[in-house]
Design a protein around this nucleic acid. Structure first.
Ligand SMILES: [Zn+2]
Ligand SMILES: [Zn+2]
Ligand SMILES: [Zn+2]
Ligand SMILES: [Zn+2]
Lengths: 134, 134
DNA sequence: TGACAAATGTAATAACATCACATATCGAAA
DNA sequence: TTTCGATATGTGATGTTATTACATTTGTCA
């Protein structure tokens, strides 16, 4: 659980698959890519994904049931701010950004409503600049 | 498609199921509740849900694969602002709110990145005030 | 009436995720 | 070094969520 997490074999395989992809992958897509590495069952993927999420090395995109390597590999865990994802529905590209003002506004709402937040998802669906000009 | 949408039979049944629930329901839970009303297949539910989403009468909670009646029944479509949901993981209660500053910050990011947003999801997972004091 | 759009019924299948149980691997304590 | 517990892995079955494909019905309007 240090800056550069020591990964097990399966965790490394799954992380590498995500890291070399140019966009988000579903668990079953990862499974198919790793058949030649000995993967046979969904749980092998899901267990590795769970750990990588714990370590902050990947993110889950709730709105498309897919996973993506963190775009800020040297800033794991993103402090305590929340992360927003812009997901292009044409090419699949995902842009990751954080915004202190949004983080602050959300925290204001939760504080004034006595709500203890554990995880916050912000996902913007649409068409990226490249695909929009096509 | 007027202020109070004229609903078909299936749409009414699905909407009423959501409206009388005290929290979000999955499509299959709705299906089970409507067996006695003649529902037999998932598609009957999903087709009604799609229309109700179009009409802005319900929302889909991406992070839990569930649906909830809009908490602002007389303000369908919420103008053009985005809506945030606070979802209690203990009791399932969902609070719906919108925030012009968050909406503005998201729009600033999309504008300056040439990203055309179509739908934006903000979901805060955690524990509500009631459940937190228990 | 005829024609078209919208809604519905039904079965099958696809896509996503977890449970249950057995086995293996590794490091620390005795 | 042996034993033990925690972590990781292998595998099949199952559970959950959503869509495809095709047939039929219903409502609207010329
Ligand atoms: Zn990240
Ligand atoms: Zn794109
Ligand atoms: Zn609403
Ligand atoms: Zn609660």
């Amino acid at each position: 659980m240090t800056a550069t997490q020591e990964l097990t074999k399966n965790q490394s395989l799954v992380f590498d698959a995500l890291a070399r992809a140019d966009g988000p992958l579903s668990a079953y897509t990862i499974l198919d890519q790793l058949r030649n590495d000995g993967f046979r069952a969904p749980l092998q993927v899901y267990r590795a994904l769970d750990k990588l999420l714990d370590y902050g090395m990947i993110h889950r995109l709730e709105s498309i049931n897919a996973f993506v390597a963190c775009a800020h590999p040297h800033t794991h865990s993103h402090g305590h701010g929340m992360i927003a994802f812009a997901i292009c529905e044409k090419c699949g590209q995902v842009s990751e950004f954080s915004d202190d003002i949004i983080t602050g506004r959300v925290r204001e709402w939760t504080n004034s409503n006595g709500f203890k937040q554990s995880k916050t998802t912000i996902e913007i669906r649409g068409v990226c600049a490249n695909c929009g000009t096509a």
